[in-house]
Nucleic acid binder design. Structure first.
Lengths: 256, 256
DNA sequence: AAGTGGTCTAGACCACGTG
DNA sequence: ACGTGGTCTAGACCACTTA
C-alpha cells in the first residue's frame, strides 16, 4: 500500500507573475481543495468515515487546527457531517441533506413531508437549444429526459422533467425502478455528488398535459421551478423544471 | 464614564437543575449573546466601528481567539462586516446587505437591478386575524399598512403591502418620503434591525386592483411572496406580501 | 510605522460516543 | 478507558489599510 503522506506547498509568498495580482491563498483553503478532490475522484465515497483530524494533519504536513478549519468549511457546505465523539463522515443524500436542503415545498400548515415519486418515462433525446445551454453541452452530446410526478400528503402536486447529460449517466434507462431520491442514485450508481443548486421561480398556467398529471383544470396558475444542479467541480450536471400546484403548499425560503 | 469591563460567567459545568439536561453552553456563544445585546439596545448602531478583538477580549475576560469566533459567527449572519486592516463594523442596510440579501427578483437575463419604489398610501388600521397571528400581536395593538409598487428596469413589476406593528414605529405616517429601502429607515429612525426573514412563495392571479397597479390584464398569474421579518431578538416585526409579475423576471434562490 | 483582522501553530482540557 | 471532535488559550507571524 502506497503511503499517501505528502506535504502541501507552503510557499505562500506568491510574487505575482504579471498583470494579475495573484491573491494570497491560505493554507486551509489548499487543504480544503485537496480534500474535495478526494470526494471528486471517489476515493472518499458518501458515508465514509474520514481519518481523524490528527491523522489528516500528519498526512498533509499541517497543524491540526488548519485541518479543522478546512473540515469545518466543508461541513458548512454540507459536504461533510461531523459527529462529536464519533468522527467526520462524507455526507450522504440520506443525511437529511438533499432531503430538505433541496426540497422546498412545504404544506401551508408548516408540515414538511417527503414526496413520493412516479416515473412516467425515461428517454434519450437530442438536447434542445435551452438544454444545450443550461448544461453547457457540446454539439452531439445526448441527454436523458426523466418525466415524473411527485405527491405530497397523498396528492399529486408536482410534475417535472429532469434533463441529464447522457454520457455522465450511462445505462440510466436500464435502472428500474428509478428511486424517489435521484441524488442518492447519482451518488451510488454514477459517483456524482450534487454539491449545490440554483433555482429560479416563475409562474405559468397548467397546460392540458399538466392538468391531466396534476388533476387540476387547464389554465390553473402553477409555480415553475427551474433548477440547475452543480457537481463538486462546478460543472452543471442536472437541469430540472418542476411545475407545482400551490393551493395547499408553498415554496419556502429562509433569508439571512 | 463607567468602565464597561466585566467578565463573563465561565462556570460551564452546569449540573442540570431537574428534568431538562441543560446543555453545555460554549463561551463564544455567550460572548456572541453579549455582543448581540449591544446591537439590540442600540449602543452599537449600524455603521459603528467596534473595539478591536484584543480590547473586546480584555473587556470580557476571555481570549482573543474566543472573541474572534463570536465575531466570525456574527459576520456569517450578516450582522457585522469585517474589513482586514480596518476593523469590524456593525452591518448597515446599505452594505449591499439587505439590498441583495432580501431582494430576490432578478431579470431573466441574469441582470440584478435595484427597484424604485412608489408609495401609494400609509394607513393605521386594526390588524386582521392573519396579521395578528403573523406579527404575534396582542388584542388592541394597531398596525401600519404601507401600500406601494416597485419598478425594475423602468417597469412596474411588484405591488406590495407592508404590515408593521404601530407601537414599534411611532409617527411612521409623518415620514415623507418613505425611502426605497425601508430596512434602512427601520434602522435609522426606529433603531430596529431586521436580522433575518422567512419567505413563502405561492401563485395567485391578478385582481382588478393588481392589474391596474401592474399594468397587466386581470387574471394574469403572479407570484405572491409572503415575508416575515424578524428583529435581532427573534420577534416578528414586519409582514409583507408582494405580488410580482414574472414574465421578464424570476425569483432566484441558491441552495447549498 | 502602527494598528487591524487573518492565518497558523501548539497544547491543554472538555463533551460525547463506543467498547 | 479510549478516541473523537469541540472549546479555549497563547503567541508568532502575515496581509491589509491608514496615516
Amino acid at each position: 500500500m502506497a503511503n499517501r503522506k505528502q506535504a502541501l506547498d507552503k510557499s505562500r509568498h506568491v510574487t505575482a507573475g504579471q498583470g494579475q495580482p495573484l491573491r494570497f491563498r491560505p493554507l486551509y483553503s489548499q487543504v480544503r481543495e485537496a480534500l474535495v478532490s478526494r470526494l471528486i475522484d471517489g476515493s472518499w465515497p458518501p458515508g465514509m468515515l474520514l481519518p481523524s483530524e490528527h491523522q489528516l494533519a500528519a498526512e498533509l504536513g499541517v497543524s491540526q487546527g488548519t485541518v479543522r478549519k478546512a473540515l469545518d468549511a466543508m461541513a458548512a457546505d454540507n459536504l461533510l457531517v461531523r459527529r462529536q465523539g464519533r468522527g467526520t463522515f462524507v455526507a450522504e443524500p440520506e443525511d437529511g441533506r438533499m432531503i430538505f436542503q433541496f426540497f422546498r415545498l412545504v404544506a401551508d400548515d408548516g408540515h414538511r413531508g417527503l414526496p413520493d415519486s412516479s416515473v412516467i418515462s425515461i428517454r434519450r433525446a437530442d438536447p434542445t437549444p435551452v438544454e444545450l445551454e443550461m448544461l453547457q453541452l457540446s454539439a452531439g452530446q445526448a441527454v436523458w429526459h426523466i418525466e415524473r410526478t411527485r405527491e405530497l400528503d397523498g396528492r399529486t402536486v408536482i410534475a417535472e422533467r429532469i434533463c441529464l447529460p447522457a454520457d455522465r449517466f450511462p445505462g440510466l434507462d436500464r435502472i428500474d425502478p428509478i428511486p424517489n431520491n435521484v441524488y442518492a442514485l447519482y451518488a451510488q450508481s454514477f459517483g456524482l455528488i450534487i454539491a449545490r443548486a440554483e433555482e429560479r421561480v416563475k409562474t405559468m398556467t397548467a397546460s392540458d398535459a399538466d392538468a391531466a398529471l396534476l388533476d387540476c383544470r387547464e389554465g390553473v396558475p402553477l409555480i415553475e421551478v427551474s433548477r440547475t444542479g452543480y457537481a463538486l467541480d462546478e460543472t452543471p450536471v442536472e437541469w430540472r423544471i418542476s411545475r407545482c400546484l400551490t393551493d395547499q403548499f408553498h415554496y419556502a425560503v429562509s433569508l439571512k
